[in-house]
Structures are given as structure tokens and as C-alpha cells.
């Protein structure tokens, strides 16, 4: 099963078992089934609960919060994760605040699904990884899907929590097969640990394989599913006694995943480095994207560099 089917199946299951659940998004009706086909089949199966919307990202997310507040849970699909910027106010100042601000008298079971990431040549407004801007927002849980876990199960978990969740999906990953946790490299007594999430996991795994084959460096990959609140203890536990850690993310450098990893591991590891995307927008040129997004060779080089330090 591919990632897109895993998410699609979970959406079907959730719609089947929750008769009040609504799915909202742009161009999500069949036969198109959404820009990345994640909602395929849903509008045919649940005609009255799959609503294709105007191009109104702020409005849709706000409407979802209202529906959810009064008893109708919602899953919103943002066509491209980049458009979450238009919904920022609804997420930060409305959906995520209601429960605490209203003294826990209400709940807001809304899930926002956002396809992020580059490597498709879509250019500066359709290739970003904007999740860090929504991490650290009280009341909002940010998750990132990857194929070395179970994308469908992640969606089920988010739904069960009955609170605002943002799920970061990755456009390239949709077509990847679901491999499961067992496929992540976890050699005993690893020389290096790569901590990463989302679309970077596959590159980290490939880099780990090359490090093992070419340099006999044992590399563990820790793939984080929950970005915010950041799972400090879980990351510490998974890094264990290893003294070298490389953190990898696709978003812009600074104030991000790498910083949180450093905060989790400060005083625990001896050598740490962080890789991120460029500190400029994502270029349209495909080749240029590959040059500036952290890929297999950049991760491998960062690991080698750390290994040689001691």
C-alpha cells in the first residue's frame, strides 16, 4: 500500500464510523479527488459530508472550527500546505485557543491536513515546509506523516484526540510504499543517530545505508512523528547513549526542528549538527531544488564530518 492509499483508507474508515464527520477542501470531489488524490472516492461514498469549498483557506478553517465546536468534527484538506499562511489567524487565534480560553468547556475536533515539501519543481509558493511556524502554538498538535510508520494510524490517533491537529504530509511521499517502523535502520551501538521527520526520512535512511556500506559507520534513523509539542523524552530515549547526532529538516534554517533536537539533547551528546533547507525561498528549477534541499549526499557528508570529529 502506498502512503496516499493509507491516508485515503483511514479517511474512509473515519467517515464510516463517525456519521457526524465532515471533510472540507478545494477540488476534493470525484472524479478529481483532490490535487494529490488523497480524497479520492470519498465524495462518491459520502456525498452529503464531503464538501468542496470555495478558494477560502482562512474561511474554511474557521468554519471547520465552528462546526467542530458545536458537534461536527472536521477534517480539512489544504490543497498545498503553503496556503496554511492564509489560515494562520483561524488556527492560532481561534481554533487552538478556544478550549483553554473557554475554561475547558468546549472542544475543537479539527484536523488540518497539509501537503508540504519541495522536489516537484512547483516553485516558491507551492514547495515550502511551513510547519515550524505552527509549532509551539499552545493548543495545537503538529504531526508529520512518514512511510516508516503507519500514515493511516496517525490520522486515527489525531482524530481520537478531539483537539486541533495539523498533519504535515509530503507531496513526494504520497507515492511511496508504506514500509513500517521495522524498516528503519536501528543497528545496535550506533555510531551516529540521524533525527528527522516527514519527507526527509527516506533520504536519511538512504544515507544510513550508504554510510554502512561505504564507511562501515552504523547509523540509526529516528523518525519523529509528533513535532509539537516536541517529544523531548522520546527523542532522548531513542538517541540513547550515542554521542553523535545529526538533525535533518527540509524547512528553512533556524528556529526549527534542529533547534528543538538540540534542546532535547544538550548535555547528552558530544557532537551535534543540523541540516535544513535554504535560507531563501524554494527555487522553481528542479536541479536547483536538489542542490539546496538536504538530500542523501548532504546527510551522508554531515554524518561523516561528525564521525571524523571524534
Amino acid at each position: 500500500m502506498r502512503v496516499v492509499e493509507s491516508i485515503n483508507r483511514a479517511l474512509h474508515d473515519l467517515m464510516e464510523t463517525n456519521s457526524r464527520l465532515v471533510i472540507l477542501g478545494e477540488d476534493i470531489l470525484d472524479p478529481y479527488g483532490g490535487a494529490f488524490k488523497v480524497t479520492k472516492g470519498l465524495s462518491s461514498a459520502y456525498q452529503d459530508r464531503v464538501w468542496t469549498t470555495p478558494i477560502s483557506e482562512g474561511g474554511i478553517v474557521g468554519m471547520a472550527a465552528g462546526l467542530a465546536l458545536k458537534g461536527r468534527p472536521v477534517i480539512v484538506e489544504l490543497m498545498f500546505g503553503d496556503f496554511i499562511a492564509l489560515a494562520a489567524d483561524q488556527i492560532i487565534n481561534h481554533a487552538a485557543k478556544f478550549r483553554w480560553m473557554y475554561n475547558d468547556q468546549v472542544e475543537v475536533p479539527v484536523i488540518i491536513r497539509a501537503p508540504m515539501g519541495g522536489r516537484r519543481g512547483y516553485g516558491p509558493t507551492h514547495s515550502q515546509s511551513l510547519e515550524k511556524h505552527f509549532c509551539g502554538v499552545p493548543g495545537l498538535t503538529v504531526l508529520a506523516t512518514h512511510e516508516y510508520a503507519d500514515p493511516g494510524a496517525l490520522l486515527h490517533r489525531a482524530f481520537a484526540a478531539r483537539s486541533p491537529h495539523l498533519i504535515i504530509e509530503n507531496k513526494v511521499m504520497y507515492a511511496r510504499p508504506v514500509l513500517g517502523t521495522a524498516a528503519l535502520p536501528r543497528p545496535p551501538d550506533a555510531d551516529i543517530v540521524i533525527v528527522t521527520y516527514g519527507g526527509c526520512v527516506e533520504h536519511a535512511v538512504a544515507a544510513a545505508a550508504k554510510l554502512a556500506a561505504e564507511e562501515e559507520i552504523a547509523t540509526t534513523v529516528v523518525a519523529v512523528e509528533q513535532l509539537s509539542p516536541f517529544p523531548y523524552e522520546d527523542v532522548q530515549r531513542q538517541v540513547g547513549n550515542c554521542t553523535r547526532v545529526v538533525a535533518v529538516e527540509e524547512g528553512s534554517p533556524g528556529w526549527g526542528f534542529g533547534s528543538e533536537c538540540a534542546r532535547a539533547l544538550i548535555g547528552r551528546v558530544k557532537y551535534f549538527s543540523a541540516l535544513a533547507g535554504p535560507d531563501h525561498p524554494i527555487p522553481s528549477s528542479r536541479e536547483w531544488e536538489d542542490d539546496v534541499l538536504p538530500g542523501v549526499s548532504a546527510i551522508q557528508a554531515a554524518c561523516l564530518d561528525l564521525f571524523r570529529k571524534g
Binding site: 512547483y122 516553485g123 527555487p283 522553481s284 528549477s285 528542479r286
Partner: peptide, 17 residues
Amino acid sequence: IMGRITGVCGGRGGSQH
């Protein structure tokens, strides 16, 4: 659109930027 340095935005923007 072909991602060349001779593009009007040097290959940064592409078709819609």
C-alpha cells in the same frame, strides 16, 4: 519555466512567479 539562468527570474520563479 525550463529552469535556466536566462529566464526572466533566473530560474527561481518558474511558470507562475
